[in-house]
């Protein structure tokens, strides 16, 4: 629309009083349909089915997911806006927390919070003289298997993430090796694992080793969800990862800024994901500096 001159600036916004109202629960209960007959409600149950199948097909489980929950919490502790700021989490804290829908524990789940987030998309020409350097959209990809969840054979991957990422990287003219950081839609810890796995950062079952040694946290070799993400900053649907990628590229992230401040690579290329349903829809975006 911008290229065609149909508009000059596009505002993408999200706001929800999810914590102080019952609207989120009402939406998820309605979403359950006849699954409610068997006591199957909401998103945690659906992702628990996916995560359990993944545990059957390859090496994964709490020993992998603890690295994601703890790594993202470390980022949240550098972000004063994060809901979980000031609340450090250890592996023991994670492993001793209660199950919601097993195998998913409370810290495997994204937050429920009030708030909002917005980004503005404009032309590169218009962005040249803005106060901050622009975060440029270098590539986009979507892939939506959209199969009815119980009939889906892809709960343990490969999800739509694989093709969406290939498309986005190809449009950007880069490879995975060029990526400096990832902002991944993290409704659940397992979503982060299966997305990065389908993006090709590691093979099925290699996540536990890939995530260990603080790979995704401050000072890590592949920072992931540097605001704390939906698990530890706040849930604003796809705008949590997208806005954080843009802010990092603009250099507006303070104590959690990628680069020398956090002993990480400069965020020249950031891979962003969004994900819908129970791994039924996926979009991938490459944002970067030019």
């Amino acid at each position: 629309m911008l290229d065609a001159g149909l508009c000059r600036n596009v505002l993408i916004s999200y706001g929800h009083n999810a914590l102080s109202s019952d609207s989120l629960l009402a939406m998820l209960m309605d979403f359950a349909g006849d699954d409610a007959v068997f006591g199957h409600f909401g998103a945690t149950g659906g992702y628990a089915l996916a995560a359990r199948r993944a545990m059957h097909e390859f090496n994964t489980g709490p020993q992998t997911w603890k690295h994601i929950a703890v790594g993202q919490r470390a980022w949240a502790n550098l972000n004063p806006h994060a809901v979980m700021h000031g609340m450090p989490m250890s592996f023991d804290d994670y492993l001793s927390s209660k199950y919601v829908v097993e195998p998913l524990r409370l810290p495997d789940n994204c937050l429920v919070n009030d708030g909002g987030r917005a980004v503005i998309v404009t032309t590169l020409e218009r962005a040249q003289d803005l106060k901050h350097r622009p975060a440029v959209i270098l590539g986009l990809g979507q892939h939506n298997p959209s199969v009815q969840v119980t009939q889906s054979g892809t709960l343990a991957g490969s999800t739509g993430a694989r093709k969406a990422c290939e498309t986005a990287l190809s449009m950007a003219g880069i490879t995975r090796d060029d990526v400096d950081a990832c902002e991944i839609y993290d409704c659940f810890t397992y979503t982060v694992e299966v997305t990065l796995q389908d993006y090709g950062f590691f093979g099925p079952g290699e996540g536990e080793s890939w995530f260990s040694e603080g790979t995704i946290g401050p000072g890590g070799r592949m920072p992931v969800n540097t605001s704390g993400g939906q698990l530890s900053e706040a849930y604003y649907m796809g705008l949590t990862p997208l806005s954080e990628a843009a802010m990092q590229i603009m250099g507006r992230c303070g104590d959690r800024q990628l680069g020398p401040a956090t002993n990480t690579a400069e965020p020249n290329i950031v891979l962003v994901s969004d994900n819908g349903g129970i791994l039924q829809a996926h979009s991938c975006c490459v944002l970067g500096r030019i």
Partner: peptide, 25 residues
């Protein structure tokens, strides 16, 4: 069983006495 999940949380009062219960595909 293709996959399963064990509900510890109670989302609906009708299932309170069942928890933890198993939803499966």
């Amino acid at each position: 069983v293709y996959t399963y999940a064990v509900y510890h949380a109670v989302y609906h009062e009708g299932f309170r006495e069942d928890a933890p219960y198993v939803v499966a595909v």
